[in-house]
Design a protein around this nucleic acid. Sequence first.
DNA 1: CGGGTGCTTGACTAGCATCAAATGTAGTGG
DNA 2: CCACTACATTTGATGCTAGTCAAGCACCCG
Lengths: 235, 235
Amino acid sequence: MLQDHAIVKHTTVPGHRHRAVGQTVRDQSIRLKADETIYSEGEHALAIYQVEAGAVRIYRLTTSGQRYILSFCGKGEWFGLETGNIRTDFAEAVCETSIRPFRANQNAAVPVDLLHIALMNLAKAQHKQLVITEQSALKRVAAFVCEMAERHPEDAEFDMMMSRSDIADYLGLTVETVARCFTKLREKRILRLNGRLQRSVRLLDRNGLMALTVQSSSSRSVKRFCVRNYLETKR
Amino acid sequence: MLQDHAIVKHTTVPGHRHRAVGQTVRDQSIRLKADETIYSEGEHALAIYQVEAGAVRIYRLTTSGQRYILSFCGKGEWFGLETGNIRTDFAEAVCETSIRPFRANQNAAVPVDLLHIALMNLAKAQHKQLVITEQSALKRVAAFVCEMAERHPEDAEFDMMMSRSDIADYLGLTVETVARCFTKLREKRILRLNGRLQRSVRLLDRNGLMALTVQSSSSRSVKRFCVRNYLETKR
DNA sequence: CGGGTGCTTGACTAGCATCAAATGTAGTGG
DNA sequence: CCACTACATTTGATGCTAGTCAAGCACCCG
């Protein structure tokens, strides 16, 4: 599928990082340590990737040096699909991470539905717009915790691997505000935080959390709305 | 009129890769008056559309009744491509508008590159995230005016067709704040507003406007950044 | 032990939302 | 022609939320 030299090249990482990797010839996946770069803005886009384990952050830098994280990609999610053949953003491992590259321009090689991937990413981006624009800091953080929780539906406790500043740059807030919001969620007995870095979350009140996140209108209210619009249009 | 051309289920076509081309047929164009509904949340997605003239707003409603406008589509732009076969948002004409529907059909007269459309919309959504999250109200409005101006590169004066409340719901601000920002832009001699509804814009200082909008880092600074990352990773 | 890192908390401030009212324009009817 | 309504926009006054700056805490590691 994807040749070894291609992997090395577009990950912008020196070979020593693959030292665990005598076996990558057989196993195509790439193992990354925390904060290792996968690709950078301006590079040629040579492959798309699927996350096997861990998490990846996709971000951009503004002219003022601000980092803005467009999305986090967890297990099973795809990233690296671009409109052109030049990277418009950066991709880094959030923590110890394993990803699998797929060469995009080789027709016969990969049975990957690119359109589906693009549409999933579009849906993610649109949902994030809703979260970010309409809501208070507390609700944004709640929505973030929800998003993380949905990736661990079975576990009572899970580890969001992102730092507070990752979360801040993702939600368009500051580290301090994010910390304050987590404190509030703890005070409201909605969750408990464990671990040295307070990144392990145990949900105590899932409903209370959901109540904080604003969503799209339910199908019921939508139905009414459709009819009204339809009638208005008709006459 | 709208429901006439609503027959076939199009959407993701499994098994397609890279150049996923939906087999579609071009229907005759539809003319809409201001605020007419094109489709609503919950409906079956039966076609995608291209704007021929005017503008379309794509929006969602939150449970609290808040409207959030995901995007405006101007001449030449596509909308209506969904992940599933159910509409997740509403589409309405902003003003007098003409659109052209495309629906699936075996006898493909016009090949439409669905992947390209999806990726363009994804890029739009990502850019909007940057605009909304990192910036003050004035910068958001400036970015909006920029976006509108880019659709009329040749005209010295153009008509953004959206109302203040459209703009507010698009940028995640209130009508009052939007109005105040336009006032500031007028005071700064960056633009002049004309017309009864003050929706006609004459740009006086394009550079001054651009200076207000924060963008992704330039290729120059990016280059430096890549190298720095590379070196950091190396040692 | 000291220095580094990441998280939290406190005090203060700037900026946007909110509520309220004024302005301007078009359309209507006397 | 003027009074009146309707609507979109603008302006003003006030309060709250999140950003900013600063400090403190907990943990790790050399």
